[in-house]
């Protein structure tokens, strides 16, 4: 599934439109949901999408380190402008949604995305 299809289906707000041209074709098959960054570091699958309510700059660094394809902030959370700028520099696309993490993940699963197994 392409990142652009996911953002359209879930009506996500694109927080980094500057990256649209270079990242919207990314193929996404995996995902992870967590607000604990050590858990993201340990378990988020490379190439996957992260759903979280944490909007700290550390989320961006951890996502870059783990080679994640995109981050979706749930429950209308939006990082500060400086965080968005750093993410653009790092080429990591960010989205936000007014839905809860539970609702977002449910929809992603329905679309065929899967989490890390056991």
């Amino acid at each position: 599934m392409k990142l652009s299809e996911i953002t359209r289906a879930l009506e996500l707000v694109n927080l980094t439109p500057e990256l649209e041209a270079t990242t919207s074709e990314r193929e996404i098959t995996l995902g992870h949901v967590s607000d604990l960054l050590s858990d993201v570091l340990g378990y988020a699958p490379a190439g996957g999408v992260l759903v979280t309510i944490q909007v700290h700059l550390n989320v961006i660094a951890v996502a870059v380190h783990s080679d994640l394809a995109a981050v979706i902030f749930a429950s209308d959370r939006v990082p500060e402008e400086t965080v968005l700028e750093r993410s653009i520099q790092e080429g990591l696309p960010l989205y936000s949604s007014n839905r809860s993490a539970f609702e977002i993940v449910g929809r992603l699963y329905e679309m065929g995305l899967r989490g890390r197994e056991e």
Binding site: L37, L41, H56, N58, A61, V62, V64, H65, E90
Partner: peptide, 12 residues
């Protein structure tokens, strides 16, 4: 390495 997480994560 692109990131240095020790101090940043502790601060968080």
């Amino acid at each position: 390495k692109r990131v240095g997480l020790g101090l940043a994560l502790f601060k968080g």
